[in-house]
């Protein structure tokens, strides 16, 4: 864990001038980057487990930048994408942004605009990763509940009273109370509000 960088930028561009200048520019402001010459090159390499951003050229031999964006979306990989292109037209940029790109810059771009976009993309990905972690932990906790406890959980967060739940499930009120206690403990919650939030997070 400790030898992972704070963040990483993947640069995919078939042009060597652009690639090397960009990576040097990023390094000069303390951002690490990895370079790829094509979309396939990027897809076949392992990705690091840390906040990251993808700087992607639109026109490349083989899979184009826009196609790579679609591939990543289909694979449910949520890495933010910043497009750079030497001949961007408006429909193209609209399409890219609609599909979730964080920005669409035309070459040559100002370093400040690039770095600003990059910083906010990395921030976003960091937060996104934390949300994802949280979701994973909650999921694990939820999976430790047994069937009866899950049912009680489902009804409790709807705001039903123990007596009502007991009626609905056809068990005694004592049983409901016991299961409710288990749910609170296993989900690491000490209030109803906490349970409701956890439920929303899991089933949103």
């Amino acid at each position: 864990m400790s030898n992972l960088p704070q963040s990483i930028v993947y640069i995919v561009d078939d042009d060597v001038s652009v690639r090397e200048a960009l990576s040097d520019l990023l390094e000069s402001v303390g951002i690490k980057s990895v370079l790829y010459t094509s979309a396939d090159d990027f897809l076949s390499s392992p990705r690091l487990d840390c906040p990251s951003c993808l700087i992607l050229d639109v026109r490349m031999p083989g899979q184009s930048g826009l196609e790579l964006q679609n591939t990543l979306n289909a694979m449910k990989i949520s890495i933010p994408i910043l497009f750079i292109t030497a001949h961007g037209d408006i429909p193209m940029s609209v399409r890219a942004l609609k599909n979730g790109a964080v920005d669409f810059l035309t070459k040559p771009f100002s370093d400040q605009v690039l770095l600003d976009s990059l910083h906010s993309a990395l921030e976003w990905h960091k937060a996104e990763r934390e949300r994802y972690q949280e979701r994973c932990v909650l999921q694990e906790r939820y999976e430790s509940l047994n069937v009866g406890e899950r049912e009680v959980f489902r009804l409790v967060v709807r705001g039903l009273l123990n007596k009502q739940i007991a009626g609905l499930l056809g068990v005694s009120e004592i049983t409901v109370k016991v299961r409710r206690g288990h749910v609170m403990r296993k989900m690491a919650c000490n209030s109803l509000a906490c349970l409701v939030r956890a439920h929303d997070y899991l089933f949103a």
């Binding site: 042009d15 001038s17 652009v18 090397e20 200048a21 960009l22 040097d24 520019l25 390094e27 000069s28 402001v29 026109r59 750079i84 030497a86 001949h87 070459k107 040559p108 771009f109 100002s110 370093d111």
Partner: peptide, 24 residues
């Protein structure tokens, strides 16, 4: 259009390398 595309690549390199040089 294709000339513009070709020339913008090294121009992007020049612009980014200049910023990098200033930073270094």
């Amino acid at each position: 259009t294709s000339i513009a595309h070709e020339i913008k690549q090294p121009l992007t390199g020049i612009a980014s390398s200049t910023s990098a040089a200033l930073n270094w």
